[in-house]
Amino acid sequence: MKQKRSLVVLSAMCFGFVFLYLPLLMMIIYSFNASRLVTVWDSAHSPTLAWYRELWTNEEILSAAKLSFKIAALNAVGAVILGTLAAFSLERYTRFRGRTIFALLTTAPMVLPEVITGLSLLLLFVALQQLFGWPSGRDATTITISHITFSMAYVVVVVQSRLATVDRALEEAAMDLGARPWKVFFLITLPLIAPAIASGWVLSFILSWDDIVITSFVSGPGSTTLPQLVFSKVRLGVSPDINALATILVAGVSVGVMLLGLGMVHRDRRKNREARAVLVPES
């Protein structure tokens, strides 16, 4: 009986991982395909780096990528600052007026359909423009503001759960020794929650770098981000240079996550070794 069940689990796992990775693998393979018909493998001229070369000389894609990078980096900084403040308020100030609404506002952007968030932000920008003349038109600024609004929610989650594990005794000790609250925060709390802030930054960057729906609502004619460009190309069908672009992006992220994972495994091992060293005295 036990055999039977593990067979079910094993086959589901195999199928699941093949399902998750086969499409990415195919995309990578076909990015080296010489044929313009993406689904037909041209064995005479493949593999080729032609699409990568074309990508490198494509001004449109390069400038869109540059804009996306700028927005994503700026967004990540803003989201980390606002998200950390919000997480601190929720975790340390357990009682203040409007806390329930505040908690709801910080988590809602994660679960709301992007179409609604995008539409509502655009309507806000239009109304603001009518009333105050700002923002004049929609551009990188409106995109960045919108991205900060939804990605700070993720920062709040990451930072808040880290804050909850911080030993308050450390903060108290600093305060008892006469440090002012802001000094306690920068000298004690901030270093302790730094890993969470770093992962919040990375997460916000990726969310912004990847966003298409909200961006489409709040962007203007002069500001086309990389996902917008990819989306408009992809709607017309598969194109080999997008395969090449996807390969670069997927490879970049995979290497990053892999390094992060290796670091985690390494840290675990070290911790285990240290724990064992404490428990088992050397003979």
């Binding site: 499409p23 995309m27 990726i206 990819v230 989306f231 996807a246 992006l249 997927v250």
Partner: peptide, 11 residues
């Protein structure tokens, strides 16, 4: 962590 748009595109 990889692009949502590109993962849909792969299909």
């Amino acid at each position: 962590f990889t692009s949502f748009l590109l993962r849909v595109y792969a299909w």
